[in-house]
Simulated assay, not measured.
Amino acid sequence: MEHFFSIIGGMGTIATESYVRLINSRVKIKCDQDYLNYILVNDAQIPDRTAYIKDHTQPDFFPALRSDVLSQAQLKPDFFVMPCNTAHYYYNELASLTDVPFLHMMRIAIHNFIDNYPNEKKIGLIATEGSIYDHLYADELSKVGRQVEFGGPEIQPLVNELIYKNIKEKGIVDAQLFYKILQLMHDKYGCHVILLGCTELSLAQEKASDHPYNVIDPQSIIADVTIDVALKIRQGIEPQQALKKYMY
């Protein structure tokens, strides 16, 4: 297979499925051959990211990711994409394993926020406790001069319920709970834009987008970037050139 990319997924599986569904549905097709070429590594056995980030006595998820990246690198994909926000905790270590370019979902999403909301100096963030605990998004936003609003103590338990109790455990999206979280972030904490810092939240947005709030959805954004880059490479543009504006 020529001109393909590798997806490091399975964190969690239905969130990865959402990403794949987005790229398949958004690419313009007239025949089977118009779809993108990719290899999906749905490694559902990767240890819990948040558990390790908060407590290093828990199983480290890096070895599994390292193995997946190295095995895929041998196949020489044009680029890697990893549709999991919290796993970007190890982005630098993973990207250094190979010369294959590795898209950074968080940075791409943040630059999308800056481009589309240049006058907004603050963004609300809802995410896993791991992403928040280790300042994964907060640090990236600080680099570009933006502030983060996490909301009050009532927000994270609601987010955890949506991510873990609903989506990960039951495979369902509680639309009303999702709307409640967005409404609180907007009305109570003054967030005109809210960043969905977990791919389970991106799944919620895919399934329950009928709301009035402005969101930055990294998974949706990286799906569009994936399509743009893959099609440019297919048209004969060198991978490094096709990826250039996205390698922040």
Rank of each mutant, 00 (worst) to 15 (best):
L177C: 06
G152K: 08
L97E: 01
I233L: 05
V100R: 06
N119L: 02
G130W: 11
L136C: 06
L177W: 06
E17G: 14
Y91N: 01
D174P: 03
K122F: 13
A175D: 00
Q72I: 15
V193W: 04
D224I: 06
S6P: 12
N42T: 10
D55K: 11
I14A: 03
V193F: 04
P212V: 14
P239M: 10
S131V: 05
L70S: 12
I155N: 00
K244T: 07
A175H: 00
L177K: 02
Q147S: 14
S96L: 01
H135N: 10
K180V: 04
F79C: 10
N24Q: 13
R21W: 05
K28P: 09
K165Y: 15
E206V: 13
L70N: 08
L195F: 05
E93T: 02
I126D: 04
D139Q: 15
M185V: 04
G190S: 00
D224M: 03
I194K: 08
S220Q: 15
K245C: 07
I181K: 02
V69M: 07
D99R: 06
Q176A: 06
H211A: 08
I132H: 05
G236V: 11
L162R: 05
I110A: 07
Q74L: 13
L94I: 01
L97G: 07
F62Q: 09
I172Q: 00
F178S: 04
Q219A: 14
G12M: 05
G171T: 08
S18E: 11
L195R: 03
E120C: 07
N85L: 01
G190Q: 12
P239R: 05
P239W: 07
D217L: 05
N42K: 02
F62M: 01
D78G: 13
I181M: 01
S209L: 14
D48A: 09
N116A: 00
Y137C: 01
K121Y: 08
D43M: 04
D43I: 12
K121V: 14
E140D: 08
M105N: 03
A73W: 08
V20Q: 05
G197N: 06
T57F: 04
T128H: 05
H192Q: 14
F80K: 01
K207E: 10
P101G: 01
I216Y: 11
S18Q: 06
V193L: 03
Q156L: 06
T226Y: 10
K54W: 15
P63H: 08
F80R: 01
H111E: 02
G190D: 08
N37A: 10
P59S: 08
D78E: 15
Y246Q: 02
V215M: 04
G197D: 07
A73S: 10
M105T: 08
Q33W: 03
S25Q: 11
T50G: 09
